[in-house]
Amino acid sequence: MNQPASLWALSIQFAQMLLVLGLAPLLTGLVRKTKARIQRRQGPPLLQPYRDLRRLLNKESVLAENASWLFQVAPYLIFSFTWVAAALVPTFATGLMFGWTGDLLAISGLLGAARFFQTLAGMDIGTSFGGIGSSRESMFATLAEPATIMIVFCVALIAGSTQLSTIADYMASGAAGLRVSLALALIALAIVTLAENARIPVDNPATHLELTMVHEAMVLEYSGRHLAMIDLASHLKLLLYISLIGCLFFPFGIARMGGGPVAYLMGLGLYLAKLAAGAVLLGAFEMCIAKMRVFRVPNFVGAAFMLGLLGVLLLFVSRGM
């Protein structure tokens, strides 16, 4: 790679790292606004998540008396694992400078590491709420993680690579065509997105003080800047999954390496449109469905695992599926 090209790739990389960080709270705000409008409410303003973050950052952190160093370090680790994972997903342009650092499997591993610290932090104080949240989160993860790997397998087998930039280029070129396995993978990824981001019907992000909550129960003891970090990581994770669906299944308009400024601007505009569409769809879907009982969730997420496995089996049996 020559000097200007690598400089360009580097700037794309940093632009997109800052972009995902800046957009993530807005995305959550849009989902909340959509839900409020469907309920015929005014709802909080779109920028409310930013204000919440600022408010939390400016408050002091109240730690439980027996909180350990792990409890204090975990929020930052959760955030940085999620941010690095989000930085590896091409959003509006492929050809990221450090895209080769980690592939889709590494992204799944990084999110797994974030969850590892989140569940451990939930158990650190030794309250029953923290335990219930961590335990249920672990149970969902034992099905959602393999489902993610199966989805990775589906797209990687079709594109012949686990590198996201390569996959996005291949999908954008239209060579993949319409395939049964890709459809199965898309459904599975949609289910995984709901489960991993603690959305209805798996978990309710708006709930408090209920025994059915999972994610909120884990972070119940957090406050101040620590809670801000965890909230920001959750916003980022939602953005990551919607970007992932966009770049794997709807990659049209994504700017390829070496495209002109127009291509990049168009890519950016289309990316924003895709995010907005994803947020509105998610909000609308959440309003159409009731939350499941906890022990119905394994069937729901297990279905994603089975769909993914079915897609992979189809691809092993016949290359055209």
Binding site: L56, L57, N58, K59, E60, S61, V62, L63, A64, E65, N66, A67, I125, G126, T127, S128, F129, L209, L220, E221, G224, R225, A228
Partner: peptide, 15 residues
């Protein structure tokens, strides 16, 4: 730098 770095110890919240 931009937020509060104050920390206080208190009994666990636990709802």
């Amino acid at each position: 730098r931009f937020g509060s770095s104050a920390t206080r110890r208190a009994p666990a919240w636990d709802c």
